[in-house]
Design a protein around this nucleic acid. Structure first.
Lengths: 235, 235
DNA sequence: ACAGGCGAAACTTTATACAATCTTCGCCCA
DNA sequence: TGGGCGAAGATTGTATAAAGTTTCGCCTGT
């Protein structure tokens, strides 16, 4: 029995073909290459990844469950278009969960993890300097996911993955100016608090970080989605 | 076009055939008619619901994403068997989320909702009196879900659905005695606090309720799942 | 010229057939 | 008698084809 036969039920099955499709599409959405509302045709994606529609469909259903794709019956799959109400819910949930996650991360602090965090900060700075907006957006989300992995809490990790993916769409849709997605300095301050094992500070930093992200959004409060047309016509 | 053509992306699509399968299997698991570890053959289920394997597979994948079914590659789908570590994570998450949910529920209180809550309590009492363990288990979870629906927070609702489903399996696996799943009195006290619009009390009641449920569990801390065999032999 | 309806094309949904993998049972050998 | 090898059976993974639905263009009638 080699160690390779250990799917362990938690492993993402990176070698799986469905996962390759899912992660490819997810990356495209998170990096803002696929815009909200874009139609995701099964043939189209299948041809790109050299897979049949069966596998594409499986991947799209998983993405729909994660909330970044909407599947409309008999019409197909589309990149989700979160409403302002959705956005408020997502950030409220993040404000609730992430301080607790960072608490656990402090408990799990170790040289190995600190090293990973440092390395990640370096990658973020590099992408920022390079002006690579796509990488910046992706890495910004990855930072939060990294802390969730560090916490060792698999349920929080699963929840947060959903919330981060949706956040990426929300930021794309509703940011006021073309501000950099996530202040890298904030991330550094959070890491500092984690290194000092200061839960109080870590929670506070995380919370203010999330508040700042949301504050940079323009979450207007239309009566319903139907008003979107009026917005477009007014522009 | 009648109002029926409104899937609205959030509706459970009750008329959908996949959803019928999913909800049927979910109910069977939540009512403890399907025990953890049970193999869920695709042909088997397909024959029961008169559907082809394509639809069954879709339903099973959704259940796997909700965490109550494990899909092992080339082996099939099985009812999940949460570990004690999973159990602790689930209840920690519930202790974090549900007090906040009940907070929102208090904000949303109205005669209509109070009526539904009362009606639900009556159903629970009736099932308890009737000695219908299956209905009791299901209704006990439905109470928590009802409050989440009342909160109007769709993300919390989605998260809680997962947590409740897993909780049902956990309680089945790890309860000390054959205690009634969930104290009905506790639920009544929570409703009372909600009616009084007393957030403080509602949060406290919810928290102690969750603590009590977890306290009635026997979450031993084996090194790994492999020790399960030793437990059985020791018994 | 324009509104309404018919029809074809494209896509999704569902079913079925085929391929790959795992399990199980029987047999053989040490 | 116990263990290991191997083939048959069963089950899942994947692809392809048939069926149903929506959408868009075009045509006709007013």
């Amino acid at each position: 029995m080699a160690a390779k036969s250990r799917p362990k039920s938690d492993a993402p099955d990176v070698s799986d073909r469905v996962s390759r499709i899912r992660e490819g599409v997810t990356a495209a959405i998170l990096e803002h290459r696929l815009l909200p509302g874009t139609k995701l045709g099964e043939d189209e994606i299948g041809e790109i990844y050299g897979a049949s529609r069966t596998l594409v469909r499986t991947a799209l259903q998983q993405l729909a469950h994660e909330g970044i794709v909407n599947i409309e019956k008999n019409r197909g799959a589309f990149v989700a278009r979160p409403t302002p109400a959705d956005a408020r819910e997502v950030f409220e949930a993040r404000r609730l969960i992430e301080p607790t996650i960072v608490d656990h991360a402090v408990d799990a602090v170790s040289p190995v993890w600190l090293n990973r965090l440092q390395q990640h900060l370096a990658e973020e700075r590099e992408a920022e300097l390079r002006g690579d907006a796509r990488a910046s957006v992706r890495l910004s989300g990855d930072f939060h996911r990294l802390i969730a992995e560090m916490s060792g809490h698999s349920i929080y990790l699963g929840f947060l993955k959903e919330l981060i993916a949706r956040s990426s769409l929300i930021i794309l849709l509703y940011r006021r100016h073309d501000t950099p997605a996530c202040g890298t300095d904030h991330h550094a301050e959070i890491v500092t608090a984690i290194r000092k094992r200061d839960k109080q500070a870590a929670r506070a930093q995380m919370l203010s970080h999330l508040n700042e992200i949301e504050a940079e959004l323009f979450l207007k409060d239309p009566a319903a989605d139907e008003l979107r047309l009026a917005d477009v016509l007014g522009a």
